[in-house]
Write a protein that binds this DNA or RNA. Structure first.
Lengths: 331, 331
DNA sequence: TTGTAAGCGTTATCAA
DNA sequence: TTGATAACGCTTACAA
């Protein structure tokens, strides 16, 4: 097993000190062209490249960001991961992907990320409770904690999401304009961000327009399967005349599953018998099999904003970006 | 900004040497219960936890594995990522997610992973050329290189995939038994692993059964959109009487897109007018909107096998696991 | 079982 | 511009 060359070995071969080698390999350092050339030549010969691990230990900066996810069942995570890794890599930062699950909870993930000295932690579409943050904060350093694609008011956490107020208002106007008057809402798993979430705003919108008592259809997780299960339960338990005329789902994963179940299991025509609206504009929403009316989250701007914060080019404060309604055939 | 406590500080507080602190935090070291208790108490007070970065530098092992992906458009990556992160985390290893793209090619990714001292590199469903490996090998250390979910014969690369020979034989038998006699095959982007890939075996199977000249329908990438584009081109250019009666697609992403395009754009009945078969058994294949006949890759066993190799519990040699045919409505 | 010395490969700081 | 000293926080090997 051959060992990697070190700066010292390159220095010996080039006839300079190792600090000169370091300088040749870091930008913005003063070094003569002559020295640099000598170093580069020696490095080439020894196939040297700097050990980023050692650099991290010395600089106290790893250029690694932990990205925490808990629902791999939602295909919409993929474009977020794509944009996130792409933007981070452009800044020479890497994403450490963390799978939150029964064997690896939020607390374990935060602790481990911390021990690995990451520069920041991103919760991707995942909620965190105020107390979880508090517990962690008091036992651990002041690592930046970001939430992407989800609203949160938890102190000490910076959120970048899609503006729900504008979104729900646009969706509501559209639905109202199309004549729907019996809306229902499918919620994902309840959590701390629930209070100010999409459901609350949806309810508010309709109350302002004379419609009270919006039915809540609960889904256990964000996935097509759970969306289908949730609407199945709702439609089975609700007589036809009492059913909603439109169901807004908290996200596309739920909406896609709900749409399918309504169409194939209950033989409902979409949107004539039942209209469905999602949220995200996931790639699948555009497929002809679904053709889902939804609301587009501006993924790339959101990710760019977040990465700008991480790089210190923009103040780290919660930001909501405006998305846009995408009208298709389901409502 | 408070700095994290170090082992030395804990040692001072506990009244022992820092090496005793180290011992208290590593398993299998001999230490008295008394000492350990003292250390743990002091650590608790100072909120100390070991710095994994420094440990990595000293042990020459990071417990990080780079996972390289190039097609985020294929939703089937998600279950692989889920299983992979889950299994790795169970071994206290973390996945560094790398997005291969125009701005970050294979060579850059390999070099960077190497510089970051990862313990291994996994190509997730991504091909690599023999020369790319060779180039990298001669300029870099002997880092284990694995290919997951894709066949490869490149020397020095360990592949864990789904046995294509058995798979194609099972699929072929099924299709032949159902009476199909004019098969076509939709291929993804061509590459080095092409020669011994699914298409070749598919062709072989049908030749053995008296069918020659299998049409190849080329797709540019593995995504639903490209699958739709590919079949669109094929159906547009091929008179009805010359069309295949069944199209096998290299994977489900292509098959799902193809199925939709055939159904919605060309008004073909699936499978009566045209049958479609995929490969992967992606989650979407089971949805009623698609109901795709496909071949299941045994994701969890594949990932477990790979992780076992990474952990040295199993010899690192290419392995093909048997999957299983999943018959649904599309063929 | 515990303490000591040396080392991992880099960077920050300062003197020459 | 270059070289030297010290430090980053931990582990291994060895001696007490």
């Amino acid at each position: 097993v051959k060992k990697r060359a070190t700066a010292q070995q390159v220095a010996d071969l080039a006839g300079v000190s190792k600090w000169t080698v370091i300088r040749a390999f870091s930008e913005g350092k003063s070094i003569t062209e002559d020295s640099r050339a000598k170093v580069l030549k020696a490095a080439e010969e020894l196939k040297y490249s700097p050990n980023l691990l050692a650099r991290s230990l010395a600089t106290n900066q790893t250029n690694q960001i932990a990205v925490l996810i808990d629902d791999f069942g939602n295909p919409h995570k993929l474009p977020f991961l794509e944009a996130l890794t792409e933007r981070l890599q452009a800044e020479h930062k890497m994403a450490m992907l963390v799978n939150l699950g029964p064997n690896y909870d939020m607390s374990a993930a935060l602790t481990n990320a911390d021990q690995r000295q990451v520069d920041g932690i991103i919760l991707l579409g995942t909620a965190i409770s105020a107390e979880a943050v508090e517990n962690w904060r008091e036992q651990s350093a002041t690592l930046p904690l970001y939430v992407l694609a989800r609203h949160t008011q938890v102190p000490g956490v910076v959120a970048v999401d899609c503006n729900a107020e504008i979104a729900i208002s646009e969706i509501g106007s559209y639905l109202y304009g199309r004549g729907y008057r019996k809306p229902a809402f499918m919620t994902g798993p309840r959590n701390q961000s629930f209070a100010l979430g999409r459901f609350q705003r949806f309810t508010d919108y309709w109350r302002d327009h004379g419609v009270e008592n919006i039915a809540a259809i609960p889904a256990h997780r964000y996935s097509l399967e759970e969306g289908a299960a949730a609407i199945r339960a709702y439609l089975s338990a609700t007589p036809v005349e009492q059913r909603a005329d439109v169901i807004m789902c908290e996200n596309d994963a739920l909406a896609l599953g709900a749409l399918e179940s309504a169409r194939f299991e209950f033989k409902l025509r979409i949107p004539e018998d039942l209209a469905i609206v999602g949220f995200d504009n996931a790639r699948l929403a555009a497929r002809p099999s679904y053709d889902l009316t939804t609301y587009e989250q501006p993924i790339v701007p959101m990710v760019s904003t977040l990465v700008d914060m991480i790089c210190g080019r923009r103040p780290a404060q919660s930001t909501s970006l405006k998305g846009r309604l995408v009208v298709r055939g389901s409502a």
